[in-house]
């Protein structure tokens, strides 16, 4: 772990990149709903077509869009084969021991595989076109309605942004601690269960101590400056959606409603 994984974000200037983060997340949620609601071949066909357009408009390339799918390809194949062989044993094509591939199984396998791939592609487009920090800020504005239920959204927003800022520091610290313990002869490759627990102690205990020390220092500093959790906080103003953003929201909503009603 030499370097903090920078996530999937790739800077760009496409129309999808330029959309506001909160709108993108909102559209993502609607699309997720649409994927979960899809039942028929036509339903999936529309979604696949839409995802294709999404990849085209975001200019991220098919490779990037499918990157995490490739990592899970074996998982997908196993799920597919399991469904193919075990799902509908009533009228199988052929029966070999417990394996009974059937038409229903084939369809069920395709169904699940396509659903997972669609979710991942849509999620990838969101994550590749939006920087993590902006993404959290987008989430914060979407949290605002929760205020009606007396949920302290400002406090949550503060916690989330502090967490985001802590990640690189803690990452470096964890790396240093790990190296220091290896230099002291720590080993993480023991076979026995209790030894395994013992082996992670030298890593986990110091990482938590260091992290909590930072938390202690920061909270003292914040209190010393008179910070209270109920105070309003400067927030990124996202403003009203632009014409294109309205179009995106409406398209996604129509897609979702179509899936529920007709397809």
């Amino acid at each position: 772990m030499n370097q903090l994984p920078t996530g999937m974000y790739q800077p760009g200037t496409s129309v999808v990149h330029q959309m506001k983060a909160n709108i993108k997340i909102f559209c993502f949620l609607i699309l997720t709903g649409a994927v979960l609601m899809a039942e028929t071949i036509w339903g999936y066909a529309v979604l696949v077509l839409f995802s294709g357009c999404l990849i085209y408009f975001s200019k991220i390339g098919l490779q990037t869009a499918l990157s995490s799918v490739r990592r899970l390809i074996w998982f997908l194949i196993i799920i597919f084969v399991m469904n193919l062989c075990f799902y509908g044993p009533e009228n199988p094509w052929i029966k070999i021991g417990i394996f009974a591939p059937s038409y229903e199984g084939l369809m069920q396998g395709v169904h699940i595989a396509v659903r997972v791939i669609l979710m991942m592609v849509i999620g990838n487009v969101l994550m590749v076109t939006t920087a993590p920090l902006v993404l959290t800020e987008g989430m914060e504005t979407l949290l605002l309605p929760l205020k009606l239920f007396r949920i302290p959204t400002e406090q949550i927003a503060m916690i989330l942004s502090v967490a985001m800022q802590f990640i690189p520091t803690l990452f470096e610290e964890a790396d240093m601690i790990k190296k220091a313990q290896i230099a002291r002869g720590a080993r993480f490759d023991s076979k026995k269960l209790l030894d395994k627990a013992g082996a992670v102690m030298p890593l986990v205990v110091p990482i938590f101590l260091a992290a909590f020390k930072r938390a202690d220092e920061l909270s003292l500093a914040m209190e010393a400056r008179g910070y209270r959790t109920d105070m309003a906080r400067g927030q990124r103003k996202f403003g009203m959606p632009t014409g294109f953003e309205w179009l995106a929201i409406i398209t996604c909503s129509i897609l979702c409603i179509l899936q529920i009603l007709c397809l």
Binding site: Q155, L160, A163, L170, I207, S219
Partner: peptide, 27 residues
């Protein structure tokens, strides 16, 4: 205090990201 609890929560959220990465070398 609430501030301290909030910051500890923030640190724990950050550790949810960092800790799995620190364990990366272990198969």
């Amino acid at each position: 205090t609430t501030v301290k609890k909030s910051i500890i929560t923030a640190v724990c959220i950050a550790l949810c990201v960092v800790l799995p990465q620190a364990f990366h070398a272990i198969p």
